[in-house]
Amino acid sequence: MAMVESQSVIYRKLAAHVFLWFFLALIIFPLLMVIAISFRTGNFAVGDIIPSNPTLDHWRLALGMSIIDESGRTIPPPFPVLLWLWNSVKVAVISAILIVALSTTCAYAFARLRFSGRSLLLKAMLIFQMFPAVLALVAYYALFSRITEYFPPLGLNTHPGLIFAYLGGIALHVWTIKGYFETIDKSLEESAMLDGASPWQAFRLILLPLSVPILAVVFILAFITAITEYPVASILLQDEAKLTLAVGSQYYLNPQEYKWGDFAAAAVMSGLPITLVFLLAQRWLVGGLTAGGVKG
């Protein structure tokens, strides 16, 4: 419509821009702040908010390099941040792959095959996915102590154990993938079966290649969930060298040993890649999120 914008619309737009910029300033302030702090000398907020004499010391420590302070003492990195990041990425990637595999096969059966207990299981999954793991931590701990006794590689204080524990959270993903499968014409697989494909081949050669978009969504969601998961990891992991980033990073803000600047550098360094992954993927994720529930 080629209409002349009325005066009121222009004012309204101006008001919207002002409001949005004000709001954004408020929202982004903590994030900009933490970047500034990561370059500020020392671990305490004294004096300026914008660093007057920026230093890379916090970043050196975060990257695992030692630094030498004014008195000439060598200060080793307080925590193995890069190792924690690596642990987090490792656990998240492997568990996301396994979650995609498990929930895809499950979703295929729920979407395409008839079997006893199908609708009961589907409903049960919807209910159970609302119970947070944090409520059953005692049981988790007990469960993993038992596993440790019989099969230590999958027990307490191991990454495989943690990955194993994360595999329980597939209910939501099964629903998401199932919904997607149901939008794919069933006669494609029937046609493949007439062509001589076994059910497994029909699944692998026809359905899977067509589902890549939703599998990517589930992978990223599972990856982010795993990388930000705190309670279960805090119970299962004990050695400093085995911690994930989510568990380890809180040690920086110990009241006895407050490492605010070091934390800021570590947080920016490790948070940035995850944030970027999320921002890049958000277009595809929005659909998956609205279909599912709440970010966990």
Partner: peptide, 19 residues
Amino acid sequence: LLILPYAVPAFISILVFRG
């Protein structure tokens, strides 16, 4: 920009606020 708080891992932003 508005989605940014959601993109930053919660455990990091919460600790940032703690500081």
